[in-house]
């Protein structure tokens, strides 16, 4: 029963984070909201795994945490440098 309560709390947080993602004036608010949403998804999967008695869900949660972090950093790099890869001809590998 407590798992259901924790899941409801996490679901509420996810909807609040989505609201911030929609409202967010700047793009960085949206990235922040999606980062929070991703972390909440990890928690949601972990608690759901315990609620349904399926410990395999924790692997999914761990993988989701990894991918969420890498996605956030990739989008940040895209926003900051305007380019994920290297522009041909420009200083080669200068931002490594």
């Amino acid at each position: 029963m407590m798992f259901a309560a924790a899941m409801v709390a996490v679901a509420i947080t996810m909807s609040l984070a989505l609201a911030r993602a929609l409202l967010g004036p700047s793009v960085y608010d949206r990235i922040l909201a999606l980062n929070v949403f991703g972390t909440k998804t990890v928690l949601f999967i972990a608690v759901a795994g315990f609620l349904f008695g399926r410990p395999e869900f924790l692997d999914i949660g761990l993988v989701y945490a990894l991918i969420n972090f890498i996605g956030t950093v990739a989008v940040l790099k895209l926003m900051h440098y305007g380019e994920l890869g290297w522009i041909d001809g420009a200083g080669e590998h200068d931002d490594l």
Partner: peptide, 17 residues
């Protein structure tokens, strides 16, 4: 712990807004 964690999540969601 579960309820406290859920409460903290909701508080931070409200703070986010």
């Amino acid at each position: 712990l579960l309820l406290g964690g859920g409460m903290f999540c909701v508080i931070s969601g409200i703070g986010l807004l």
